[in-house]
Design a binder for these strands. Structure first.
Lengths: 211, 211
DNA sequence: TATAGTCTGGATCGAACGTTCCAACCAGAA
DNA sequence: TTCTGGTTGGAACGTTCGATCCAGACTATA
């Protein structure tokens, strides 16, 4: 309560305008929470487990996140969403051709997932699905992330001459395809679905008329 | 295990056509478990909650499923997977044109989801994602369901002249697209992603060469 | 050094978890 | 009736959950 406020006022060294305050422990907690949420979801990623993974104690978690597990999860989802945005941006900017660029996103996701033993993929899918209609804060954070990712893809498609409406629609399908193919790949432990999704996404984008 | 088999053998009097069996407790438990697993996942669908939804008591759950929650979840996933197979079969057989047929699956899914307040969709996605690498029985049941659904789509595509390899690959993308678009639709509470997925799936199938 | 405020380790709370246990129930056979 | 075996309701087990508390360890300023 007052703890958070006074800390915000006095911590002049922290980055202005950014979200709360940046401590090493705090950052480790958010990072561990993000990883564990995407690995096993909201319910089975316990506060003690997260704290342990962050080499912190449960009291530190509640010190930095007075709102408890839900507040931590929301920030962890935002953190993970930003990381995923970076992955999308990297993929999208890897080629001027929008078809190759979207395919690159799928391939990049496949590589990242496989290299991390199917851990580092979409950071919000499990948590979001799990808490639909039951933890509004999480569902809203997930929706915002999905919208943002779709906007990234939309911008790329528009920039290569695809009409705005078609670009937005196609971008939704691209994000959906990535999410679905990732699900198949993670469950089956095989990156084939993501690699074939890359091919089909490229076909789909290539077939969309450019103005 | 033996419990299930012996019951199936002896239970010749109950289910067939006669007067309404007052309590088929076991079936109600499986049905309730299937619904709750797809609504909120494995961890937060507690045994007591499932039993309550099935108008049964926890001891009944452990009577019919000595293997506990995991054994129940596996059977509930198989049950739900069969229901989803029926939905896919209905969609696929709605048109001789494979493009229209796959699109129909997405639209059928969109309708089913929306009418049920985003509850009755893919019965395994949440549970499968949540337990990857931690509950092998569930992961395997999920993989089997996904493979079976992919085979249903593959058969439809092959039957309309698409080469086997291309059909299999495309079918994987179809299932992935359905899963991903459902995720977007459920999280955002909007059936637009599924409806646009229908359009793009039809485009994709139509663009695949037939022999 | 002393002081004040920030952070942390560990014990602890009540609630809920999966599971077990047992007495009661209910049908059909003797 | 009595017996028997499958079924049920409810209490209770130990564990773990999210969350709280507090004494002490930090860190920075004086």
């Amino acid at each position: 309560m007052e703890v958070t406020e006074s800390r915000n006022i006095e911590d002049v060294t922290a980055p202005m305008g950014g979200p709360p305050v940046e401590t090493d422990t705090r950052r480790r907690i958010v990072h561990a929470a993000s990883t564990l949420l995407q690995r096993q979801g909201y319910e089975s990623a316990s506060v003690k487990l997260i704290a342990g993974a962050a080499k912190a104690s449960p009291s530190s978690v509640y010190h930095f996140f007075p709102g408890g597990k839900q507040e931590l999860a929301i920030e962890a989802m935002r953190y993970g969403a930003q990381e995923f945005s970076d992955l999308l941006t990297a993929g999208l900017s890897s080629s001027p051709d929008p078809a190759q660029a979207t395919a690159a996103c799928a391939l990049l996701l496949a590589d990242t997932l496989k290299e991390s033993d199917w851990a580092d993929g979409c950071p919000i899918a499990v948590t979001a699905l799990e808490t639909i209609g039951r933890v509004p804060g999480l569902q809203q954070a997930a929706t915002e992330a999905l919208v943002h990712w779709q906007e990234l893809v939309t911008a790329k498609l528009e920039s290569s001459g695809i009409a705005p409406a078609a670009a937005r629609s196609l971008a939704g399908t691209v994000i959906g395809m990535l999410e679905g193919a990732e699900l198949l790949s993670r469950v089956s432990g095989d990156d084939t679905p993501l690699r074939e999704a890359a091919v089909h996404l490229a076909q789909l984008v290539r077939a969309t008329p450019q103005v």
